[in-house]
């Protein structure tokens, strides 16, 4: 699962949605893999307005990536900055969680990631 996808996801439990602790989910015991992909600047520009930057900063730190700037680049800044594009591309698109768990900071529920596919199905008592 890509780091970008992780930024789109929160805890699936309805009672957790209102809590700020349920997002982002925290990677636990994660095995990371990297897949080499082409830089897609149109996508990254589009993605900037949809990514929660604060959460991305947290995730990057938890996965051991260098600290991100405090605020996201503007589309203009991004377009002129090859290095920034490449770094964001590496973090958001190329880095993937292959095995591990994603933990909700509110209810503590753990979602398993197996072979890159995360499972968000809930047991009956959480539906």
């Amino acid at each position: 699962m890509k780091v970008l996808t992780l930024n789109f996801l929160t805890c699936a439990v309805k009672a957790c949605k209102s809590s700020s602790d349920s997002f982002p989910l925290h990677p636990k015991d994660c095995e990371l893999v990297s897949d080499e992909l082409e830089v897609n600047s149109a996508l990254l520009t589009n993605v900037l307005t949809r990514v929660d930057w604060k959460a991305l900063t947290t995730t990057a730190a938890e996965l051991g990536f260098p600290t991100l700037p405090a605020t996201p680049p503007t589309p203009e800044e991004l377009a002129g900055d090859e290095k920034m594009l490449k770094e964001l591309h590496t973090l958001l698109m190329e880095t993937q969680i292959n095995e591990g768990k994603l933990v909700c900071g509110h209810c503590g529920h753990e979602y398993a990631v197996k072979e890159g596919i995360a499972n968000f199905l809930l047991p009956n008592h959480l539906v």
Partner: peptide
């Protein structure tokens, strides 16, 4: 993009 296992009526996607 990605694929994951989820139920739309209990979706993990952020409401935004």
């Amino acid at each position: 993009g990605d694929s994951f296992v989820a139920d739309l009526t209990n979706t993990p996607l952020r409401a935004t």
